[in-house]
């Protein structure tokens, strides 16, 4: 049962693509999350409202629906806008871009909550001291807020990352050759769906298990010098 009939390398390529999708989405999610958290904590009611609407809407919609909306809707949108700017050929939306944007956008909302909590957990006096020294807000962020919020953000960040990795399986539905789709193709050709999906499941377990150990290491590192009861 556990002969892969020469499809091993193909599944491996898919695994690499899954990791690429995960990491690029994570990058987008981190940027959006940071922007969202700072907006939620800012004094401007407009920014606050926008960030709240963002997180509320994302939490109400399944990721698959959002991904299909971005993929199919984006296709129509690009081809409506294309002729307006003088581009007349039919444009195909790249499933990698659609997938990465959707996943990044969804997890940006979860990261917003994680980062908001982490920023609030930093002692306010620390920031005040920074301003008292005449630091600019950016400098306060870079030198004081950020290094201290990492410790509080890591547990939530870790959870989001693990969920994100599993969510990338959805990109197989919009036609990206990640490991789930590679497995489906191999399963179709060899008539051994169980074998190939089990291999994919084991790959996911490996990725999540390794992630958990790395995250634990980072958590220990960033908590150095914190007294524990």
């Amino acid at each position: 049962m556990f002969s892969l009939h020469g499809y091993g390398p193909s599944i491996f390529e898919g695994t690499i693509l899954t990791l690429e999708v995960s990491l690029v989405s994570l990058l987008i999610a981190l940027v959006l999350g940071m922007a969202g958290a700072l907006s939620k904590l800012s004094r401007s009611p407009v920014l606050k409202g926008l960030a709240t609407a963002y997180t509320t809407v994302i939490r109400g919609i399944p990721d698959l629906v959002l991904m299909l909306l971005v993929f199919f809707g984006g296709q129509v949108f690009v081809n409506q806008v294309g002729p307006l700017v003088g581009y007349d050929e039919y444009i195909d939306i790249n499933p990698f871009i659609a997938g990465v944007i959707t996943i990044g956008f969804i997890f940006g909302a979860y990261m917003t909550e994680t980062f908001r909590g982490a920023i609030l957990a930093v002692n306010k006096g620390q920031l005040e001291a920074g301003y008292a020294y005449g630091m600019s807000s950016f400098k306060v962020f870079r030198r004081i807020l950020f290094p201290q919020m990492v410790r509080h953000a890591l547990p939530g960040f870790g959870n989001n990352w693990l969920v994100l990795v599993k969510t990338t399986a959805l990109v197989s539905i919009i036609g990206l050759d990640d490991m789930v789709r590679k497995a489906s193709m191999a399963a179709g050709a060899t008539r051994m769906p169980f074998t190939f999906y089990v291999v994919v499941a084991i790959n996911f377990l490996l990725i999540t298990t390794v992630s958990i150990y790395l995250l634990q290491y980072l958590e220990n590192r960033y908590s150095l010098g914190v007294r524990r009861s």
């Binding site: 399986a169 789930v180 399963a187 769906p193 999906y197 994919v200 499941a201 377990l205 298990t209």
Partner: peptide, 22 residues
């Protein structure tokens, strides 16, 4: 560990397509 560590989509494929292998 298995059900929390793997995507729901893969689990569903395993049940729906996978068992037909045997």
């Amino acid at each position: 560990y298995f059900f929390r560590g793997t995507p729901l989509l893969v689990q569903m494929f395993l049940v729906y397509y996978g068992f037909g292998q045997f």
